[in-house]
Design a protein around this nucleic acid. Sequence first.
DNA 1: AGGAAATACATTGAACATCGAGGTATATAT
DNA 2: ATATATACCTCGATGTTCAATGTATTTCCT
Lengths: 112, 112
Amino acid sequence: MKFDKSLLSGSTQLLVLSIVAQEDAYGYEIITKLAEKSEHAFEMKEGTLYPVLHSLEKDGYLTAYEQETAGGRKRRYYHVTDKGLKELAAQKEQWNAFAAGVGRVLGEGSPA
Amino acid sequence: MKFDKSLLSGSTQLLVLSIVAQEDAYGYEIITKLAEKSEHAFEMKEGTLYPVLHSLEKDGYLTAYEQETAGGRKRRYYHVTDKGLKELAAQKEQWNAFAAGVGRVLGEGSPA
DNA sequence: AGGAAATACATTGAACATCGAGGTATATAT
DNA sequence: ATATATACCTCGATGTTCAATGTATTTCCT
């Protein structure tokens, strides 16, 4: 496929970038928000999220800073960079093209 | 994720099932049709398709029969079974839920 | 006060999917 | 004759995700 790595699995990146772009967020929070917003269609696992977060940071799409709660709990917040916003836009486009393609393949012959 | 294997990568199965369900087809033809119908959003590789075809057949979603062209070229046609049609319906539902979920995550905050 | 559950971070090994490259063979076009 | 398209297939490398596991703190319940 043309999209596979940059979409099928890249949908993870897309989702994470999208959440963080809306508001700075920390790991645990991202998982929660994803579940909420998708109405539990997604339930991303920590083992999936953290490596993605690290690679997004390494690639310069996100920056991280630590902050303590009133309670004293440390959280690692992520913030999207300009580069990250551009990447997000690109991945959104890719997703739309992919989804439209699937729709076209499924639609003809027996419109759901 | 909840869907990953049954959707992200399972989108391959969905796509193939959908093509064959519309009309019996052989391997090479499936790749061509997928490219056409999706307006080149997908370009499935043979190394991806044939293993999928074999596993769909093994699982009873497809049956195969051989046929020769006027030219004398042998083709292995695939036909969808009742079980395959049910699976297709199920995977379509999954896809729709997934796509809707992504849409919801992307949509809020900055409606494209 | 004590214990369970939720919060919050992270890593590792196994499983799985896809691709790229390679292989075989026939038909058609140049 | 030779190159390209058709048509099937396999294998190894790569990359992604998950389940399991680990640590530590905070909050809730009894």
